[in-house]
Simulated scan of single mutants.
Amino acid sequence: MDTDILRKKKWRTTIIFILLIVLTYSSAVITEFSLIEGIIAIPGTVIWMAVNLIPSSEALENLPKVLERLWETIVLSIFATMTATICALFFAMMGSKTTQVQHFVGIAARFVASIFRNIPVVAWALMLVISFGHNVITGYFALFFSTFGFLVRMFIETIDEASSDGVEALKATGSTYLQVVFKGVLPDTMPQMLSWVFYMIETNIRSATLVGILTGTGIGYLFDMYYKSLNYEMVGLITITIVLVVFAIEFASNKIRRAIS
């Protein structure tokens, strides 16, 4: 019996592996992509980047302006993430099978979150530009909507996986809904939820650069302006500052996550 099960698993794994190879090859043929040509082009690309993207002393004189725009992007990302977190936590409580008040409400909450999650942040930015124009509000809502949809799903999975036993014990003792949430759900799930929040802050800082290009705000606006004017030294300086900030935030968030776990 065990041998038959293992044989079936091997066949399924083999079939899936073959399908992935076929899909990969088909995609390369359709897009006319050549892996060999791509590998050959890597050294030339690295040399071009080393020559053109290294900031000069003249570019470094604009560092204060870059940092000002970068700070605007960081603040926007954090604010959008934190406000989305509050709304996502509420919807996750309604959508989780462990804490939902009514089954229909739970389905509705998960459905709304699914819609927001499956629309990319770029699509949100393009749609919102039509309504709000090129300003910070557009960037905020684009980040807020995509973050909200993602966090609702992650929070629901966290609640269902981490707190079901504790919730059942509290319900058996006659605890109220709020007591179940604040004494059974949040203490067990808060470390994992905070991990997802920090992850979204990191992600949103990267996404905010692209959103800024579309909305004409933040560090993305500077990147787009210098890129279109072929000022690659400034493009390199902006890219380096973004990378350093993301690394710094990732380092800090890892420290915090280890401290609270």
Rank of each mutant, 00 (worst) to 15 (best):
D2I: 06
T3E: 12
T3F: 15
K8G: 10
K9R: 15
K9D: 12
K10W: 13
T13Y: 15
T14W: 15
I16Q: 11
F17M: 03
I18K: 11
I21P: 03
I21E: 05
V22L: 15
V22A: 13
L23Q: 01
S27H: 01
A28D: 02
V29G: 03
T31P: 10
T31M: 13
E32M: 09
F33V: 05
F33M: 04
F33S: 04
I40Q: 07
P43V: 01
V46C: 05
A50W: 14
V51P: 03
I54A: 15
S56P: 06
E58N: 08
L60R: 02
P64A: 08
K65C: 03
K65Q: 14
R69E: 07
R69P: 04
W71H: 10
T73W: 15
L76F: 07
S77L: 02
T81C: 11
T85F: 09
T85S: 10
I86G: 02
C87F: 14
A88Y: 07
G95H: 06
G95Q: 07
K97C: 08
T99C: 04
V101D: 06
Q102R: 03
H103A: 10
F104R: 01
I107V: 14
I107T: 12
A108E: 05
A109S: 15
F111R: 09
F111N: 12
V112P: 01
S114I: 06
F116R: 01
F116G: 02
I119P: 00
A123R: 00
W124F: 11
M127I: 09
M127G: 11
V129K: 10
S131C: 09
N135C: 09
V136D: 07
V136A: 09
V136F: 12
Y140K: 02
F141N: 03
F144R: 00
S146C: 00
T147H: 07
T147C: 08
T147G: 05
F148P: 01
G149S: 00
R153H: 10
R153E: 02
I159M: 04
D160N: 09
D165N: 13
V167L: 12
A169Q: 06
K171T: 07
T173M: 15
T173F: 14
G174N: 05
T176H: 11
T176W: 09
Y177Q: 01
Y177C: 00
F182C: 04
G184D: 10
P187K: 08
P187M: 11
D188K: 13
M190K: 03
M193N: 01
L194N: 04
Y199E: 07
Y199M: 13
M200E: 04
T203G: 15
N204M: 04
R206G: 11
S207E: 09
A208T: 00
A208Q: 03
T217L: 13
I219K: 00
L222V: 02
F223M: 14
D224A: 12
M225F: 12
Y226K: 02
Y226Q: 01
Y227W: 10
S229K: 06
L230W: 12
N231A: 15
E233C: 07
M234R: 04
V235Y: 06
G236P: 14
G236I: 12
I238S: 03
I238K: 02
I240L: 15
I240P: 13
V246L: 13
A248Q: 09
S253A: 07
S253G: 02
K255I: 01
R257D: 08
R257A: 06
A259H: 09
A259M: 05
